[in-house]
Design a protein around this nucleic acid. Sequence first.
DNA 1: CAACTTGTTTGTACATCATACAAAGATATG
DNA 2: CATATCTTTGTATGATGTACAAACAAGTTG
Lengths: 210, 210
Amino acid sequence: MRSRLLDAASRLFKEQGLAAVSIAAIAAAADAFPSQITYYFRTKEALFVEAACRDVLYVARAAEQHAGKQLSPSDYTRALVDSVMGADAVGFFVEAMTLTRRRQDLAPLVERTVERLHAEGLRAYAAEMAARGWQSRLDPETSARRFWTIAIGVTLEGQAMGRSAEDLAAEMLRLLGPQADAQPEATRLRLVKTGDSAPGDLPEGQGEAP
Amino acid sequence: MRSRLLDAASRLFKEQGLAAVSIAAIAAAADAFPSQITYYFRTKEALFVEAACRDVLYVARAAEQHAGKQLSPSDYTRALVDSVMGADAVGFFVEAMTLTRRRQDLAPLVERTVERLHAEGLRAYAAEMAARGWQSRLDPETSARRFWTIAIGVTLEGQAMGRSAEDLAAEMLRLLGPQADAQPEATRLRLVKTGDSAPGDLPEGQGEAP
DNA sequence: CAACTTGTTTGTACATCATACAAAGATATG
DNA sequence: CATATCTTTGTATGATGTACAAACAAGTTG
């Protein structure tokens, strides 16, 4: 019953968000009584966070399975991005993250989830990429965290700006590209001789065709 | 009165979040009647989004004023990050962004805010940095968007993981460092045209005449 | 078997809250 | 003054999250 409630909650919350879904609706979808939600999870918000955490971990683990496919680094990243972006898992989980700003009691679950995300899902990705020379100087942990941080930013802003999943994946790849392969501590700002950078010149990523 | 309601709402929402603050509480804090919130803003959520948008733009503009201080690129970025992170503006605004997932009618305001953020606040920063050889190959628009995207990701994850503002700023600098100054070589993607025209919408805060 | 414990379901009561709505008051305009 | 618009003041209501009680099932122990 508990998992049935989680399933129904996950689907409804993902579709309509926390505030728009009542516990009565979730109970109905799971063929249960509203009080059972109070019983298994203490509050609606706790159910929300738990469903979001379960989902994002599930998606991350599924995405990890791309590792065996012998893809090129960019294709591999692309596949992972598609998996993560395809399901609403990131947006769903982000909504759970914002909750913890005022529900500190739910923070531990979110923290554990992020840590497991790094350890179980993204770290394998990072290691795989490093083995192929992509961001080789970043240790897997840093690389994994970076992937996740950027995924959050890109997803959230992309959703707000109404961008397509296609655009989000492209932006992810841009921000994750091998140019980020450098020592983090590098505040060594070498003054580059700059001649150009006239605004409005060529938007980045213009000269695509090789 | 309208601005007094916005002020009270901004403070309370930032402290306790959308769900935890009732319109009655906001009205009380502004010495007004709850119905006046319905009058000036149609719903509580609209008030929330408008307050968040106002705040994040205010902070961004204030941060822009660091431009005249002749700081080094890293110090300049650091000052901007501190300004942006210091106030809860980003977290507040992010909560507004998640709202637009289910309140599409509020999306235009958020979109306009992000665009103004880029144009008014961050683009000056980006241009300044480019003039000093930092990320010189990125046009200001891209650089500004990148700053914002990363700020969102870092802030949100940092909050959820309970990191200090110090850590967040350091992580921002790492992700924004000059090592990101390069064209992705392995990731040449087509950049789908994302420049959608903002649908003609009403100017600034409308007074709502029933 | 009986008594007790524990986990789960079924059902009710209640306080809170966002919103709708009414109507009075204010202010400007002709 | 008359009229229209904006704003304030006040009330009503439907929905909802949660607390709580009691019924129920199923072991476990004496």
